[in-house]
């Protein structure tokens, strides 16, 4: 697909792949489609309007985060914001302590490991959390504590979300074409984006599987 020529809404950076970092202009329409997809995933996770959530992420990842913020806003989900680093764990701890959160999205191992220093009992706290979506590392730790979190991963320019106790990461198939190539997944945008991804190799080793008629990514 040819890239559009309008002015970008923002410029993001992709930090994985053989020639990383990739500087990617971002268009308003593509981010809008990303937000619509994020909304569907959040609804699938069971996130409901009117109840607070915590969205942890870094400003350098706004190319992925902004659609999530936009989705939560459209869903009328009040959301707190905190950074991914252990140095900012006090902020996540405060939101976790003070609010009856329905969901914690994007939690990292750095944050998880730092929470006890801020007086939080991680096992107890997350045992009662209705929705958790964790980054790799945090996901394994939460599983070991008996939680059933979703897992989020980056597949280059897009998120993949793996439901609890299910195999394979969901991704936006309307927007992205993923192809297997000698054990790696190549990424192409199906619809026009300001940065054209043509069979780009981000070093993702995996294959495509089908679960209930739905394509998913299985990392290998």
């Amino acid at each position: 697909m040819a890239a559009t020529n309008t002015k970008p809404w923002a410029v993001g950076l992709l930090r994985s792949g053989p020639e990383a970092p990739y500087v990617i202009p971002l268009g308003e329409e593509e981010l809008d489609r990303d937000a619509q997809w994020a909304m569907r995933q959040f609804e699938r996770m069971g996130i409901q309007p009117g109840k607070p959530a915590l969205l942890i992420g870094s400003g350098g990842d706004y190319h992925l985060l902004w659609p999530c913020e936009d989705a939560l806003t459209r869903m009328k989900v009040p959301f707190g914001q905190a950074e991914v680093l252990a140095a900012d764990a006090a902020r996540s701890a405060m939101f976790l302590r003070r609010l009856q959160l329905q969901a914690v999205l994007g939690i990292t191992l750095d944050i998880l490991d730092a929470l006890p220093m801020h007086g939080l009992d991680v096992s107890r706290l997350f045992a009662n959390m209705p929705v958790i979506c964790a980054a790799p590392g945090a996901w394994e730790k939460l599983r070991s504590l008996g939680c059933a979190p979703w897992q989020e991963i980056r597949l280059g320019p897009l998120y993949g979300f793996q439901p609890p106790d299910e195999e394979g990461y969901l991704y936006n198939q309307d927007e992205w074409l993923l192809e297997e190539n000698e054990g790696r997944l190549l990424v192409t945008n199906r619809r026009p984006r300001m940065f054209d991804f043509k069979r780009m190799n981000f070093g993702i080793t995996g294959r495509l599987i089908e679960v209930d008629g739905e394509k998913r990514v299985l990392l290998t």
Binding site: P49, G50, K51, P52, E69, L72, T73, K76, P78, F79, G80, Q81, A82, A90, R91, M94, F95, L99
Partner: peptide, 12 residues
């Protein structure tokens, strides 16, 4: 509280 759109915080 359900009408709030997003929550930020002081530096601490």
């Amino acid at each position: 509280p359900s009408e709030v759109n997003w929550l930020v915080s002081t530096t601490g």
